[in-house]
Structures are given as structure tokens and as C-alpha cells.
Design a protein around this nucleic acid. Structure first.
Lengths: 336, 336
DNA sequence: ATCGGCGATGTGAGCGTTCACATCGAGTGT
DNA sequence: ACACTCGATGTGAACGCTCACATCGCCGAT
């Protein structure tokens, strides 16, 4: 009449059921050599019969390393980040890892410390941080260097392995496209902080190389609403003929505001986006934008981390994934 | 000259540094009573000095339960799911839990078993499954009932605590809106499987109650491209004056196709979406759609799970969160 | 003075695994 | 027939923590 302990079966239970020692069970579970095929079969049968699952907490405890990779980001629902996360999860799952997410919402120092604290108390194999803004960037600095880590987006942080999309190249292609169409200069509606952004860099450098005036960037947030507000302001400045937006949502907001203000796109103003979201081809006008493969980025980021975890092979420099311009309806020659 | 073991400091190290036993350290860490304030301060100082983090694997091993909640979904990057995930993460973080994601990509039986296997080998506190399709639904069935679990979206599964958005109510409001405008019937472009979907149910029931013809639903996928294809077909059938789309992306694709085919929206055909994505207000025409608070859904789903974990209070019935119709430009009276 | 009681702290055991090493039996070369 | 190797399996310890229980002072009540 003892209490019926609801307990997952352990290696010992499997060992007892198959008449071997727990060590042999361990060998079978971990696919090691030196186990008689017959014994292996017997153990496997017992595993199946008892519904045994290895306990990863116990394993992590003794090995000192888990099979979970943590993803640290300030946002996970914007299209690009969500897709990148998807890529990470995909590759991680295939490699037998599990994915944990931590969203850094507040720039508050103690909140961040708390998040990092909690991160490190788990048995992690490694960490991937979205370093497009300062939140994740400074969190990475707090992570002990012994923990394998990869930074994605932006400029990276803490000298970690870094992978990013060629936003600068994409921006250059976008600006060149507009210049080739005959625009005298191109305005940029970007999300601060603007400095480390490849988009800003590509925009500025290309204008500079072309020797055309470089207007001040217009600060926005990631929401279409913010794009709409900027677009309304731009509509009043008739000297602006081309706008390079920080992403497709902003671009869509700008387009809508311009048209609501009676201006034509691309007749009066050309607008170019960034990301090539699934909707970009179906808005009116459809958006000329820069296409990026976020899922691939996520997969590659995991692969990089995986290499770091397994063989500690630190890559020499940052990995840069290509982007490409997709020309659609929202850009055209300026009205003369 | 011993090997310099890179090892996180443990409770024992903290105990040694502050001159108490490891048990006292444990009490301090877990905020228990019965510790002298002075001792507590001394321990805390040592914790800080050594940079001690509790090892959650060890804790999970002995308590038999982790502080991680797993989210099981077939997709995490579509707007609604990404936002729901965000809400879960937010609430979980606030409550001291960590979030793990598992994407069920393939309907393959053994893949699913593999995923559940891996899920259960972790030290979980509970599980949240997005049961809008069969993938997560059948995974929930494989989870032992002792594991606290909450199902989100759709019809739920396994008799678990269930929370969902009032899609049916939203669909009803949408259809009524169109009927009120004078449409004779409303077509539905939905994503199969159609049966358990509240959108389909609300659409069908409202048409039925109005005593108007109920056309066959038109199958689509979640992509705008699929909407475009359906829209092109609809453009040829001039008797169709109103379409209720499965989500805003599909609606946008349909709108674009209709206009590309020379038909006017809403002049010739009214189109209504679902979700109220940030972009819905800025497309042309802006979309009449059903607004849903996904973030809140995620938060509430976690709260539900949290209740299950802490006090095992199983709610009586499903929780239904309100949705509401947002009227914009894509709907209007039919041309007579 | 003696004792129960209670607040503060310590001790032993065990959670389920892996690692390092020990053992054991059957072949192999001489 | 001998030590000798090697493949197969077993044993003890440890990972860092929490649980249950033991201990130790010190208080006021008798």
C-alpha cells in the first residue's frame, strides 16, 4: 500500500527490466559501440515497453552542458525576426537541440541583468542574440565568454561569431536603382539608432559616391502608422521625389499617406521598402524592395553556433548573406 | 598545478565563502523564512561576489519539475502566432518561467513522436499547444495527462484547459455587416481543414440564419499568393459580390487580383479580412477586418497554465476572448 | 533551577545521469 | 597450457540541488 509515486521510469528501471546494469542502458541510449547487438535489442525493447525517456536535466547536470540554445531578442514578432527564429528552430531541431526564447523588452539595466541571470541558470549549450539594437547587444556582453554565442544582425557584440544579411549591399542596390531612374537624391526613413544599420550605411555611401546631396535621415519606428505620419509630412515637400524606407511596413504606410495627400506613387514620389515581406508583391502599388532570406539566416546562425559548440571553430570574420533588389511598381523615374 | 576547472560556483562555494551550510544558502536563494537577516545579507554578499547562479538543471532533477513551459505549434512566424507567442513569453517571464518552442513541421507520425519525445525529456513545468490544426492537436494527445497543458486556438484537444479567440463571433459580425450592406450572399476563402474553424462556423451559421444561399467554401493557404489566385478566379464570376477571407494576407491578395482584373473593391466586390494586422489599415483599399488581441491571448494562456501548475485548478469550460469588427474601405454596398 | 518550545542552522540522503575505472570471460599467439 | 589482449559489462563516485529530519541555543513559563 505504498504511495503510488507517479514517476517517469529511469535508467535503473530499464536496467532491471532487461537484466543489465544501468551503465549498459546508458550505452545503448547514447548509441555507443561495445554493446552486444542482442543486449542492445533487449534494452531497446524494455525502453519501449516502459515508455522510458532520458532525463535531460540529469544529463545536463553531469555533463555540465545542456542541449538547449537560447535566442535573445528585443522582438520576435516582426516578420524578419519571426522568420529568423523559425530558421533557428528548424536547424536546431534537426541537430537534436531545443530552442528557448528570451525577449528583452526593457532597456532597464536590472531587467536585463535579471534576464541574463535566468538565461545562465539554465543548462545551455549556447546562445544566439539578435544584435540589431543595444538591448541584446549589451546582454551579450554580460554572458561569460566560455558560453558559445553567435550574434545575428547589426554589428554584433562581444567579439562573438557574427552573421548578418548584406543590408548595406541591398541598400546600395536600392539607392543605385533610384539614382539610375534619374532621382536627384533619395531620402531615408529609418529606425533609430541609425548608426550601425547597414541600410543607413549603404544609403549614405551610395549618395556620397554619386556626389548628390545627402538629406538628414527621417526617424521612424517599425510600425506602418509611423510610416504614415512620415509620409504625410513628405507629401508637403514637393522637392522629395524618392524615399528609401526602413522596411516594407513603413514603406506601405508612406505610400498610403502620399496617395491620401493626393500625390502619386511612383509618379510623384518613388518609395522603396526593405525585407520583401509576402505582402510586398500584393499591395497597391506593389513594393520595390530588398529581398532577404531570413529563414536561411536563422539556419546558418544555428550552424555557426553548432560548430562553436562541437569543435569550437571560431570563424575568422562575419558571415554575410546576400540580399537582392526586387523591382516592382512603387519606383519609377521622377516627373520632370 | 591542477587543471583549472572552469566551473560555475555552486552552493557549496557560496556556503564556504559565507561561513554557513549549503542548506542555509538554499534557504536564502529560495527566499524562505527562518533565516537570520544578518546571515541572509552575508550569503547574498557572497552570491554577488562569486557571481553565483542557481543551477536549474539540478533543481529540476530533485524537484522533478522544471520552470520551463513549452510551446508547441505548427507555425510561429505568421502574425497571429508570433504575437501569441510574444504574449506567452511576456507573461512567462514575469512569472519566472522560461519558454521553449517546438515547431511541428511535418504531419509525419514518427517526426511528431520524436518531437514529443524530446519535449518530455526536458524538465518542463507545463505545455501550451496551438491546436488550430491537427499537428499540435495530436501531439497533445501523446502528452501524459499528469503534465499540465493548455490548448490555444481551434477546438482544443485531450480535454485540456482551452482558450481561444471568439473567431465565430468575429465571423458572425463580419457576415452580418456584409448582409446589412445588401449583399445577397457571401463567399468564404478559408484555409482547410475548415471544419473546426470558428470562422467557417460563424460564416455558415450567419448565412443560414439569414436564409441566404450558402456557397461552397473556397480552399486557400495562408499566403497572399494563394489569395491572389482565388481572387483571379472570383473576378471572372460576376455574381460574387462579397468575399470573407481567412485572414488579412489572403484578403490583400484577393483585392489585388480583383483590381488587376479590372474589378473595383468595394464597388464590384466587397472583401473582408481577419486578424487586423498592422498593415490592414494602410493597404489600398484599407481592409474591413476582425480585430483580435493575440498578445492578450498569449498572456491569458500562460496564466491559465500557471494556475494549473500551481494549484491544479482546472477551469470549467473554455475561455473565449472577444473579437470585434473594424469597418474600413474594402466593404460597401453591392452595385445593383 | 528545569523544561518545553521555537527560531536558526546543520546533516544525510537521493534525484537520474555520465565518467573513470574495474572486472570478467573468451579468443589468440607462442 | 600460458600470459595477453580485447570486447562486453558492471561498480563507485560525482554533478548541484532540495527534502526530511536532526541539532543547537535561547527564550519565557513553571
Amino acid at each position: 500500500m505504498s504511495t503510488p509515486r507517479i514517476r517517469q521510469p529511469s535508467m535503473r528501471d530499464v536496467a532491471r527490466a532487461s537484466g543489465v546494469s544501468y551503465q549498459t542502458v546508458s550505452r545503448v541510449i547514447n548509441d555507443q559501440e561495445r554493446v552486444h547487438p542482442e543486449t542492445r535489442a533487449r534494452v531497446l525493447a524494455a525502453v519501449d515497453a516502459l515508455g522510458y525517456h532520458p532525463n535531460s536535466a540529469a544529463r545536463a547536470l553531469v555533463t555540465g552542458r545542456g542541449s538547449t540554445v537560447a535566442v535573445v531578442a528585443s522582438n520576435t514578432s516582426l516578420y524578419g525576426y519571426a522568420r529568423t527564429l523559425e530558421g533557428i528552430e528548424d536547424a536546431a531541431f534537426a541537430a537534436g537541440y531545443t530552442v528557448n526564447i528570451t525577449v528583452l523588452r526593457s532597456p532597464d539595466q536590472s531587467d536585463r541583468a535579471d534576464a541574463v541571470e535566468r538565461l545562465l541558470s539554465q543548462p545551455l549549450a549556447g546562445l544566439i542574440a539578435f544584435t540589431h539594437d543595444d538591448l541584446a547587444r549589451s546582454a551579450v556582453e554580460d554572458v561569460p565568454s566560455r558560453m558559445p554565442a553567435v550574434t545575428v544582425f547589426g554589428t554584433g557584440a562581444g567579439g562573438r561569431a557574427h552573421i548578418l544579411l548584406d543590408e548595406e549591399g541591398g541598400a546600395r542596390a536600392a539607392i543605385r536603382h533610384l539614382l539610375d531612374l534619374g532621382h536627384r537624391t533619395i531620402h531615408h526613413a529609418g529606425v533609430p539608432p541609425l548608426l550601425p544599420s547597414g541600410r543607413l550605411l549603404g544609403w549614405r555611401a551610395t549618395l556620397e559616391e554619386a556626389g548628390v546631396p545627402r538629406p538628414e535621415p527621417i526617424p521612424v519606428t517599425w510600425e506602418p502608422r509611423s510610416g504614415y505620419e512620415v509620409g504625410s509630412a513628405i507629401a508637403r515637400q514637393h522637392d522629395i521625389t524618392a524615399v528609401f524606407a526602413g522596411n516594407d511596413d513603413i514603406a506601405t504606410g508612406i505610400v498610403r499617406a502620399l496617395i491620401d495627400s493626393g500625390r502619386d506613387v511612383p509618379g510623384d514620389v518613388s518609395v522603396i521598402g526593405f525585407d520583401d515581406t509576402p505582402l510586398a508583391a500584393y499591395t497597391r502599388p506593389s513594393l520595390t524592395t530588398v529581398s532577404q532570406d531570413f529563414v536561411e539566416l536563422g539556419r546558418r546562425a544555428f550552424d555557426l553556433l553548432h560548430g562553436l559548440i562541437e569543435q569550437d571553430d571560431q570563424p575568422a570574420g562575419p558571415t554575410v548573406l546576400p540580399t537582392h533588389l526586387v523591382t516592382r511598381e512603387s519606383t519609377g523615374p521622377p516627373r520632370r
